[in-house]
């Protein structure tokens, strides 16, 4: 695994290499290099299985972190390729030509985080949320509680009692 990282470092701008376990590494790569590095990993280094593609919203720092988790089935190793993309201009090159399943992940990310993947099949169709008209819900600045209070008709809940007061009134009504 260390040799692989050394090889990749010669070609691509790699930073923040974390050896999470013996067979699991996370690293960060520049947005420009990401797709060519992933293609090279798939075609030459044997990382043929796309485990998942997900995003993390770092609202305070102002960027989205995309994680492409790749798996080398022969060598039983995992490589998490992190890409930081600007939160205001959330757009990334699509990898649907490398794995058929990537299109589904990208469609979900477009809907849930508002990250665009131009050219990915059916990326603009709604995946889970039909008729959604708010900001993408998995962004950190989307407030689920506020949304549900505004959207759904508020029903009066059960009447709540302070237990001490309530029992006192029940047991000693004359006091």
């Amino acid at each position: 695994m260390k040799n692989l990282i050394e090889r990749l470092k010669k070609q691509f701008k790699i930073s923040e290499v974390v050896f999470q376990r013996d067979n699991e590494i996370f690293l960060t790569v520049e947005k420009m290099d990401a797709v060519s590095m992933i293609t090279q990993l798939r075609d030459l280094e044997g990382f043929t299985h796309l485990v998942l593609l997900t995003a993390v919203d770092w609202l305070e720092e102002g960027y989205f972190q995309l994680t492409y988790l790749l798996n080398n089935y022969e060598k039983k190793t995992d490589l998490g390729v992190r890409v930081k993309i600007d939160r205001d201009k959330a757009e990334m090159t699509s990898i649907h030509h490398l794995w058929k399943t990537a299109a589904t992940y990208q469609r979900e990310l477009k809907e849930m985080f508002g990250i665009d993947f131009p050219g990915s099949p059916r990326v603009d169709e709604s995946f889970i949320l039909e008729g959604w008209d708010n900001i993408p819900p998995y962004r950190r600045d989307f407030d689920t509680k506020k949304y549900s209070e505004e959207t759904y008709f508020p029903r009066p809940g059960r009447k709540t009692h302070d237990p001490a007061e309530y029992m006192k009134k029940k047991l000693y009504p004359e006091d």
Binding site: V18, Q20, R21, E24, F26, V51, L52, T54, T67, L69, D78, G80, R82
Partner: peptide, 16 residues
């Protein structure tokens, strides 16, 4: 950040 997987009846199940 980490990823853990297990073999469920349908295949690879994992949490990132």
């Amino acid at each position: 950040e980490t990823y853990v997987r297990a073999e469920c009846t349908r295949g690879e199940f994992g949490y990132h």
